[in-house]
Design a protein around this nucleic acid. Sequence first.
RNA 1: GGCCCCGUAGUUCAAUGGAUAGAAUAGAAGUUUCCUAAACUUUAGAUCCAGGUUCGAUUCCUGGCGGGGCUACCA
Length: 599
Amino acid sequence: MSLVTDIKALAKEALGNLYPDVEIPGSSVTVNQTKPEFTGDYTLVLFPFLKLLRTKPDVIGKAIGEYMVNNSDWVASYDIVAGFLNLTIHDSYWASFVTSQYNNTTYGQGVPTDKTVMVEYSSPNTNKPLHFGHLRNIFLGYAMSGVLEVTGNKVVKANLINDRGIHICKSMVAWQRYANGATPESTGIKGDHLVGDYYVKYNDEFKKEVAQMVADGMEQETAEKEAPILKEAKVMLIDWEAGKEDVVELWKTMNGWVYAGFDVSYKRMGVNFDKMYYESDTYLLGKEVVQQGLEKGVFFKKEDGSIWIDLESEGLDQKIVQRADGTAVYITQDIGTAIKKYEECNLDKSVYVIGDEQNYHMQVLKLILQKFGHPCAEGIYHLSYGMVELPTGKMKSREGTVVDADDMMDEMIAIAKQQTEEAGKTEGFTEEELTTLYETIGLGALKFYLLRVDPKKKMIFDPKESIDLHGFTAAFIQYAHARICSILRKEGIEKMPKDNLFADFKLSEQISPAEKMLAVTLEQYPDIMQNAADEYNPSLLCNYTFQLAQQFNSFYDVHSISKAENDEKKQLRLMLIIMTAQVMRHAMGTMGINLPEKM
RNA sequence: GGCCCCGUAGUUCAAUGGAUAGAAUAGAAGUUUCCUAAACUUUAGAUCCAGGUUCGAUUCCUGGCGGGGCUACCA
């Protein structure tokens, strides 16, 4: 139970006892951390009670303040400033909090919920390598999985691979025409990049063919439909759906190259999946559901044979769920996949990490499943995130402004190396240790950069700013962590002592402002984690951990730990920094960001 | 056209309807005989406009202006 919860409960108790005749809604009890310019730790806002109780804030504040001091052993004193009741918590509360929790390895871990949650993320196409936009999706999905797991859920990480369709055939056609049998092995090119190269090649050739046809007198529009390479791709798609052997064989081979490439990227990113779904497997499932829905009367058939659902009563349009020729559209397979996931994994919740351009699509998906009456519908949650844009605007593959994911990782690691060398911090490391360190710093920076913004908001990716290792970055937190580890090494203390080294600790002196600030922030950690889960927002953890690191740095500046004024202070400070480092590791680790012990 | 989202320091981001709107970065000025200066301290700088609700509005409502997305028998 967190302190804020306790304060709220005590305030409600006080109001109930002091004003038994008046019903005070629980939602009107708001508690905030006290602003630094006032004395106190937490503040109860009195304004909401004034009208209900028809009394002045000073009177109510005094009554509640007195009650809280007298009826708890942790409220030390109170102070009323213009409608705000500022509460000061006893130093002994903070001391016992730190003493009891500093080496608790499960601090921040929530109670089990018995819920199973699937988080689907990454969900790439198999015709080109992962790009910077995928990185936001992947890190968000992985971090969210971690947050949900820490808060007590059983989490299934899933990846739905879009491995079929015309775009895949385009790469295949171009490869057939121009590759002369080139493979990742023969060229030394990573599989996903090799296939991506032929996707680019396809588009180049398509443009050339269209230009030629226009030059020969054809209308632009007609040419774009009649280009031979496009026709080839279309034929290939039909052959694929018909199961034509050589096409299927090529499809398998090229997808295999892509998967091998993705695996390397995922491994480097430090992410993984428990379940893989392939649209080539699931697209038929949806069609069965559509048939059932037709029988149930949820869907209806138009004269041309196409099947629709009417969502006008929900303020939306009519949506097609199956084409006139009987083939599946995008949403058809999503319907099938949603049900398959639900049934295979016994899901209570299903989180989809998908960009906000698909808000409408996801709304429709959920509505269709609700109308169909399937129990999986209620648990569907679209974790919608904004697009990543460049300072110059959107990334466009046609204009070649897409930033490749592998390149980005390389660049970040190179920057980490360069900055470490420039700072002259390479001494005392082996070559392997340095390689690991650069990865930890470079990838940490990249992940943090993408996770620190509220997922719902679109974000600007500024290459110049992203490589900065100062300020609101992972490196700042990593550095603070390394400093703590360094102190503990010199003191000969493990970073997470198994035994309670400070069992005989007794507080006799006042806690300093810097010491208290750390304790207060540490105490809030479980609440922050829960908020991140409730709001599906890992950026709260980034903000929190950065604040913790800032406070540690200030603390470190004003207080010596190894040369503390006396043994009591030294023990208190050691406990504080052990716990600070632990919470940093826990929070960052939940999001897949590692913290080095030296840097 | 219809529907949805977003406008906060020069820039990138914060702020369950609560106190004098916080950080980071860029700018200015400082700190190292002492546990890692990738740090710390000080300083200057912002709520798109106009109404409304409220004791109190960056937050909620209405109307503008500006930006983005969706509105396919594409995925």
